[in-house]
Write a protein that binds this DNA or RNA. Structure first.
Lengths: 135, 135
DNA sequence: CGAGCCACTGACGTTTGCGTCAATTTGTAC
DNA sequence: GTACAAATTGACGCAAACGTCAGTGGCTCG
């Protein structure tokens, strides 16, 4: 398959849904929010190579905890002149912020796990006590 | 202070709010959801020692990620005959489930962090490239 | 030519945990 | 007595990311 073929290829909504395990509702929602805007053949959505690439970025963003509005903000810079530079700088900054947030979250999660493990131990201790006495 | 004193002591809603850094709205909300039900002097809420203990459990539950409905489910068993046994067993099971969920979350969080760190590196690399070329 | 099937739009619903009024009452301080 | 703080209820709002109809249209297979 040549590059031309690759870039000429298009997808229907259901094809993308299957490939990335999302619902049509989700894709239309992203479109409504301005994260995607596929061409139409009549009224049917036709996703091209770039739309698909954007979708991949959207899903990646979601995986690392970005909100759709933040993802949109970053994607939108593609359309600006000097887009590369600005887009890269914003992306870099946003990603570091997100990284900080994720790491804070990690700390909290660790604390929660430890607190819960301690409590688990206590509760199971109480159950053992009761079993011993009850027997 | 004797034990009697301790157990006789009561709190107003605002006292508890200050002590645990929650809003009155939150406490009323918990009550509406059936997690608390303080006595009333007339129409004013009076929280006793046990109400306060329940609140502590509620907040602890929240910290480790339980939903209010789950916390309620566990608290409700206090009222059953054989409450101790049943309550402890349910609590133990729920807590292990929650612990599993938290650990899965931890794995996902780790993955997200690593993905984001890789992407960060890539983006910063691109920025460096541009700077080098541009200068 | 009817039966599915896929697609579309628009609107309302869901979940969770409160926040934010607004109007009212009551107790307290001066 | 009056002003002010503190408490109450009820109702509506909000954020996020869709889910779930309901109603409509068009393609295609046999």
């Amino acid at each position: 398959m040549t590059d031309e073929d690759k870039h000429a290829r298009t997808w229907s909504i259901s094809q993308l849904c299957r490939e990335f395990d999302v619902t049509p509702r989700a894709l239309r929602f992203y479109e409504q929010k301005g994260l995607l805007n596929p061409r139409r053949r009549g009224w049917t959505r036709i996703y091209d190579y770039r739309d698909r690439a954007r979708l991949i970025l959207i899903l990646r963003g979601k995986r690392v905890g970005f909100k759709l509005s933040e993802i949109k903000e970053m994607l939108d810079l593609y359309h600006l002149r000097d887009g590369q530079e600005k887009q890269l700088r914003l992306a870099s900054r946003k990603m570091r912020e997100r990284l900080e947030a994720l790491k804070r979250q990690r700390v909290e999660l660790e604390e929660a796990i430890q607190e819960l493990e301690r409590t688990c131990t206590v509760v199971d201790g109480m159950l053992k006590e009761r079993t011993r006495k009850g027997s």
